[in-house]
């Protein structure tokens, strides 16, 4: 095995990759949210033009693949680490005691991550495939409005954003810990910025379907 591969396949190396892909995905989320916020500008706003631009401009294609790659790598690594970790503790303690809460906190990322993955598949089919492979340029705005007129879909999305919040809550500070940056000096700062990330990003996403459903967006 080459040095780089050995490095990356070690337990810390895998965590580093998790952190780096996580970092990349958080920046994607921020970008995605920024774009979505244009929905508030209404049907004549910039949202559709941006969507159209992203859907047609060739440079975006490779970036899309990188993004998919990031998601897949993040999830595969997460799954693999989770599996290895289970192997390292073959038998549970007979009395759960405090270990129960610890276990939950530690396993939360894989549970929430799996939920997010499932959602993503649906989300991609619902919007991405629907627009990109329709054979013609689709205006995204009505597509979104149509989707968020159904209460069930809204509920599903809202639940997912809560799950995303938990995932980010763990992931954001963990990413700094894995990169070795969560030192006592910066711990407070990282945790403060973390609130922005795990609360504000999901809340931003969550606001859109609700506002739309209750007619806030025309």
């Amino acid at each position: 095995m080459s040095g780089a591969l050995r490095f990356l396949s070690s337990s810390i190396g895998k965590k580093l990759l998790m952190a780096l892909t996580g970092c990349f995905l958080i920046s994607f989320l921020t970008f995605h949210l920024t774009m979505n916020l244009f929905l508030f500008a209404g049907s004549n706003g910039a949202f559709s033009s941006y969507a159209e631009f992203l859907g047609t401009y060739p440079v975006v294609r490779p970036i899309e693949w990188i993004l998919f790659g990031g998601f897949i790598l993040h999830f595969l690594l997460g799954g693999f680490v989770w599996f290895m970790n289970r192997m390292a503790r073959p038998k549970a303690y007979a009395v759960k005691g405090t270990s129960k809460t610890i276990k939950l906190a530690s396993r939360l990322p894989i549970y929430t991550g799996s939920a997010i993955l499932a959602f993503l598949v649906w989300h991609i089919i619902q919007f991405f495939i629907a627009s990109r492979f329709a054979g013609e340029t689709v205006d995204m705005f009505p597509l979104v409005v149509a989707a968020f007129s159904q209460p069930l879909i809204i509920v599903l999305y809202e639940v997912l954003f809560i799950i995303l919040g938990f995932h980010l809550k763990h992931g954001f500070q963990a990413l700094f810990q894995s990169l070795g940056l969560r030192t006592p000096k910066y711990r407070g700062f990282i945790d403060a910025v973390g609130v922005l990330v795990w609360l504000v990003i999901p809340a931003g996403f969550a606001s859109i379907p609700l506002v739309m459903y209750f007619g806030g967006i025309k």
């Binding site: 337990s11 290895m84 906190a105 763990h170």
Partner: peptide, 11 residues
């Protein structure tokens, strides 16, 4: 040795 990886639960 077969120890698991850190998942930052800080237990």
């Amino acid at each position: 040795e077969g120890f698991g990886a850190c998942s930052n639960s800080y237990a």
